[in-house]
Design a protein around this nucleic acid. Structure first.
Lengths: 364, 364
DNA sequence: CTGAAAGCGCTTACAG
DNA sequence: CTGAAAGCGCTTACAG
């Protein structure tokens, strides 16, 4: 804002208001649709029609409006528009992560930036919201439920997140990043976009097998996250198919943190000293695995091959650099926005599973 | 939204509209101030007064409204409010960084999260905006200039950013992260919050001196950024004060990237093989420095001490772990929001310089 | 302290 | 194709 609204002689009932006056004393008046109409010599309705697709507007009228918009510097007042259309014209990027793990995850940046960009192309601002605590969740679901946002890009790694359900119940289009948990009651899964975790894990374990490894351990992710479950599943599948006997002693569970990877591999080494490879379900945990192996005097990849997952910056900062599975974060964000726009236009929820890619570096 | 607005018998002119009806067919009606007024048995004006501070509202009326809000589940329609107050009730977090370096910087996460949180406490949503290209800058300054946002948290590391000036000119309260460039023409510096780069550099160089180093080199940051300039300044000051002869051959310039740090130290080593310490103006560059030193067969810290800057996650992922200067990112975000709220309330621009902290680890 | 009324800037049937 | 008019949900002087 930052302007003084002056009495407009052409509007008999207009009154003088001095609100939103700039601190610095400038008195710029933000032009309205009314100004554009006056300059263009048409009615406000015509300007509005021009603004909303230009249907039922003659070529001359359109041109007059176009030039009037240019000369006045008109920008639509979204509040007025939203008030009548009932749509806010904005979308929320909602993070429901108590541990705030995502903020430590470099991939999160890529995702957030990608969504911001993709939305900007539709001229839709992104509202960043963090609902870590139950109070914040309540406040935010109320806010969103009141229609202050047309759709939600939901990021939460853990299952049992009540927010997704509440939002869906309130009729808000939602698309989640990552596979949602399959509710015990068989709740319909919402729209989501995810990397193909299972196939990614398969590819990595096959790579380990192909390079001659036979005693392949794994550090799986938390088993209350779909990603954690799927990557372990992929591991089991390939081993089963390869005829290598299943060995539960080669499986350890981490929580995606570096430390948990270090602990898990230390355990694994104690249980199965003869392991010659380990598929670690995240790069961060793989960093911990590298540390544990070094401490144990094992060379990587000579003695033990290490395969990570994510292809996060952590993958290249290590020594040796990590062979890993790249998650298509840029595409995930693009697809999330695309699916959300579809939902907002009335399409049914859909799931998009994106392929991952094996990145071979030094560790395996 | 997500509801059908039905004809309201108490409002003679109300019409039936079916807009914003949920895709799933539910027909929930979002309660308005009118519903609250009816339930509470007061006028809409009274409800509004209650909502806006409760002045001129009797205790009984207040109580009736409070309970009516609760029972109806009323949430204010911000668009309607904004339309009349001329304030949007939201704030932009604006990134004007062509290189998008900030998105690779883990500190950026902390900053963004901190600002989101601090704003949420005031019940103000944060709009994330990225203006990397000139076109995006134009679109965004128009958007902001039209009053769609009450204030801007500006993040841009480079000088000569035209956005800050345009925003200020449009009368939008702005507070920048980091010291703005001192314009050649002596433009008044805007509100900003920054770490004390110069003192941080001084502390590090003193630490190097105190631990017996005498041939202290530096890899400075880009000299078109205030941080780059100030950290080099601090380095020079301490050396000058210590009586160590100034040696321009000990000074190299990087661009904050890992590679540039590696290059710079390689150069430095060629020019001054007898250097026994290097103050590197960012942890990322320091990582590169470590690599260059290792390649050159110098032990850290025995042969050469390395001091970083930032205390980013890069500082602990290295071997040896980096001794560095911690930037108070959490406080920076809190202060940015505090100063911005002040600006929005009409206060004059102010600058906040926050202290840094020496974190001693293994590299120096 | 409180109600009735005007009006914020826009969109959208409704008649031409 | 186009204008006049109603109305979105709220706030705010203005009278009581």
């Amino acid at each position: 804002m930052g302007g003084t609204r002056s009495t407009d002689a052409t509007r008999p009932t207009a009154r003088t208001t001095a609100r939103a006056e700039g601190r610095t004393g400038e008195r710029r008046r933000v032009p309205t649709i009314h100004d554009v109409a006056r300059v263009a010599g048409v009615s406000r309705g015509t300007v509005s029609r021009f603004l909303n697709g230009g249907h039922h507007v003659s070529a001359e009228a359109a041109e007059a409006v176009r030039s009037a918009i240019h000369s006045t510097g008109y920008v639509v007042n979204r509040h007025a528009r939203s008030l009548i259309t009932g749509r806010s014209g904005s979308v929320a990027f909602l993070l429901t992560e108590p541990q705030e793990r995502f903020f430590e995850d470099p991939n999160f940046n890529v995702l957030l930036r990608g969504c911001t960009r993709a939305l900007a192309e539709h001229d839709i601002p992104l509202l960043l919201m963090i609902a870590g605590t139950p109070e914040e969740q309540l406040r935010i679901t109320r806010y969103i439920g009141a229609g202050h946002v047309d759709g939600v890009l939901l990021v939460s790694s853990h299952t049992g997140d009540p927010v997704a359900g509440q939002l869906a119940e309130a009729g808000i289009p939602v698309v989640a990043c990552g596979k949602p948990a399959i509710g015990a009651g068989g709740a319909v899964p919402g729209a989501h976009v995810a990397a193909d975790d299972r196939e990614g894990a398969r590819v990595m374990v096959r790579h380990l097998l192909d390079t001659g490894r036979r005693r392949i351990a794994t550090v799986a992710g938390p088993q209350d996250t779909p990603g954690g479950v799927d990557r372990l599943l992929g591991y089991r599948e390939v081993l089963a198919a390869s005829g290598v006997p299943a060995d539960e002693g080669l499986i350890a569970i981490g929580d995606y943190s570096r430390d948990s990877g270090e602990r898990a591999v230390t355990e694994l080494l104690a249980r199965r000293p003869d392991l010659d490879a380990v598929f670690v379900a995240s790069d961060l945990m793989a960093r911990g695995a590298l540390a544990a192996l070094e401490r144990a005097g094992r060379r990587v990849p000579e003695d033990v091959a290490v395969g990570g997952f994510d292809d996060s910056p952590a993958a290249v900062g290590s020594r040796p650099e990590l062979t890993t599975i790249r998650q298509p974060w840029a595409r995930i964000s693009t697809e999330m926005v695309r699916v959300l726009m579809g939902r907002m236009a009335g399409e049914e929820p859909s799931a998009v599973i994106l392929p991952t890619e094996l990145v071979v570096r030094d560790s395996a």
